[in-house]
Design a protein around this nucleic acid. Structure first.
Lengths: 333, 333
DNA sequence: GCATTGCGGTTAAACGATTACTTACCTCGG
DNA sequence: CCGAGGTAAGTAATCGTTTAACCGCAATGC
């Protein structure tokens, strides 16, 4: 593999000059610059980023830990984060934790060894203590989606309470009085916030929530399907369902279809997240759309501000607003 | 940041000994080993993978280039590849090309600079010439999904012809005679193979394909929706649709629903790929399931065989068989 | 005419690991 | 007693960059 030394030799200059030509870090006479460039193309030289990283202790790499990139919502984040990162010259190491803390810790160790410049985490099980070793090594961390109490790192989160409030209000506005709710596991903070927002909306509308209409889902299609079925089979079934993510809402759609219910007229369904498929569900699914693109860009921006030392000290939390996207699944009776 | 030298100093040994303790590459007396380990925990030492990579010229990193990881099918591959890689101690750099050759080339350059040990590509636009520089640097490449004519690298592909044949045969077996076909862009080789398999099945069943029943889609939900609509609005509409991927099939489901067609009875629909959501579509969608897990593991295995020099010389192509998963969307009339 | 300043270049020391080579010591057979 | 061989350690070169320090030399200022 050809090195900077080979180039220097062929061009008849020192390695320092080659390096300066490479990085535009000092004026080099046109003569030498020309010879260096010529030598580089002739030898088909590609700088070794590993060596550079060792020298400048900066890898231009960030780690991304997600629970399961196969799920559309996380897949979207993976794409958005990767694009935002690559736009500013960073590469992304993808880490799929499979929802397991043990895997997350293993990845933390790897990423630490790899000397990533920073780390973005979507996780429900990691705590501030777990990332403390990372921070101690001066690699900033950004929590995405799920903030942390007493967090020692920046966080990019959604206003889940408001989002859920809007979802419920939308259903109420469409004339629904009995609203079923398929939540997620309550270990996640964001689940609690959504529950709170949901109940708040009912309360503000003068409705009282029937506890029998709440089910705890697992953020997957199967539980959405099963729990929606349970709710629809009640003696007094709800006229609308609010699923805490789109995947469960899609499962709910299926439960409704199987019962011959016309979604949108007989039954309102709204999801959460705003994944691409909602637009082409049958019928198109109303949802609370998260601005993942903006949130990803914010995550990268916040991270790099730390990396570049532009921001030190107390950790910040940026809260984004979701947007109601009303589609046929909540047309109203 | 604490280095191997700090550990050596605290333990009162040479860096060589620390390294050997670290890697179990030479016998070290229990006495010294104990002191070294103690020093490592006391200093909270983490080896620097960057320095190691420079020295041994091996990064334990592979690159993964995909067109768009937000699409469920690629997301699944991202997960499967990442898991297979991490199981053998490799990290994955995710590269989202956004279907653009220019981006792919940019990534190739980055990955080359990063000295990844190998590269897995899902791409329709890259050619053997594009990856030649990578191969020249001794980093093996594996084509995934889409093989290449005159390829200079190993390929893991599906038997698309057989898969499409099975899909069409399944519809025929369910009593369908007029079958609409929503293909993908014909730049992709796999599209051609699927078309061929589809026609072969019709032929074997003694049917002739009505060319008016073929539409060229873009592998996204919108085109599936639109083109299925066109087909269903024909004077002599097909009684079944074969979409070349599940996303388009889901779009087709919507078109059918809008027209009040009962999918499974009035209209058969089958997709391709076997993404998770097919199981919970309304109704559950029949599909041709790709063994992405096995293919991912094969991709990693083949790649590492090259990395470790266990296989040299001519490039291999591994062809996998898809599996028909019959669900309600093709119940039959 | 002499000190100062810029300019354009080189030299060589890092960065943090791995590892070929060397060394010191011990044992054992002849 | 001596040399061969084995064991357990250390020394220092090396990987491919970046960059602080240095060095001539010409121009500039006074």
């Amino acid at each position: 593999m050809t090195t900077i030394r080979d180039v220097a030799q062929l061009a008849g200059v020192s390695t320092a000059t080659v390096s300066h030509v490479l990085n535009d870090t000092r004026v080099v006479s046109d003569d030498l610059r020309g010879r260096v460039v010529a030598a580089m193309v002739k030898l088909n030289y590609r700088p070794n980023a590993v060596a550079r990283s060792l020298r400048v202790s900066e890898t231009l790499t960030i780690g991304l830990i997600v629970p399961d990139v196969e799920l559309p919502f996380f897949a979207r984040y993976a794409r958005d984060i990767e694009m935002a990162a690559s736009e500013v010259g960073y590469n992304v190491i993808l880490c799929n934790s499979n929802w397991a803390l043990a895997n997350e810790l293993r990845y933390l160790d790897h990423l630490l060894a790899r000397r990533v410049d920073g780390l973005i985490c979507i996780s429900v099980s990691m705590t501030p203590e777990h990332i403390a070793p990372i921070l101690r090594r001066n690699a900033p961390v950004v929590w995405l989606e799920e903030g942390r109490i007493g967090h020692n790192a920046d966080a990019i989160i959604l206003d889940n309470q408001r989002g859920a409030y809007d979802a419920a209000s939308h259903l109420i506005e469409r004339g629904h009085r009995r609203i079923g709710c398929i939540t997620g596991p309550t270990v996640a903070q964001l689940t609690g916030d959504r529950i709170s927002g949901f109940q708040h909306a009912l309360c503000d509308a003068g409705l009282t929530h029937d506890e029998r209409l709440t089910r705890v889902g697992a953020y997957d299609a199967e539980s959405g399907y099963r729990l929606a079925g349970e709710l629809l089979d009640l003696d007094e079934p709800p006229t609308a369902l609010f699923a805490f993510n789109d995947i469960m809402a899609i499962g709910a759609l299926r439960a409704a279809h199987e019962r011959g219910l016309r979604v949108g007229r007989h039954l309102g369904i709204i999801g959460f997240d705003g994944i691409g498929l909602t637009a082409h569900a049958s019928p198109p699914l109303s949802t609370i759309e998260q601005p993942t693109r903006a949130m990803s860009e914010a995550a990268i921006a916040v991270l790099l501000e730390r990396v570049n030392g532009q921001h030190r000290g107390e950790s910040r939390t940026l809260r984004f607003q979701a947007r109601l996207v009303a589609r046929e699944s909540t047309l109203g009776a």
